[in-house]
Amino acid sequence: MQTEWFILLSVILFTMGVLGVLFRRNAILVFMSVELMLNATNLALVAFAHQWGSEAGHLFVFFIITVAAAEVAVGLALIVAIFRTKHSINIDDLRQMEG
């Protein structure tokens, strides 16, 4: 099995995640797109680990999954908190960072 195909799939998934971030205005969906990007990255890492026969890729995937878990916990908590105050999770409504 050629590693290239896995990489290609990973790139496709990543691009889709990017498009999701850019297209969707629902904050939760944006979040999910980010997760998709992370998963695509994981796939690439695992594929490379397989290619090189090195466990380092696996470890990075492990770390990414852990970080993603933490990120999701905090991110969803943020979304909940924002929704409480603004009653919206449309990211176009969240413009407090306007310079």
Partner: peptide, 11 residues
Amino acid sequence: IQAGDVRVYAL
């Protein structure tokens, strides 16, 4: 550019 729009940042 700094319009506070998250998606522009993402872009």
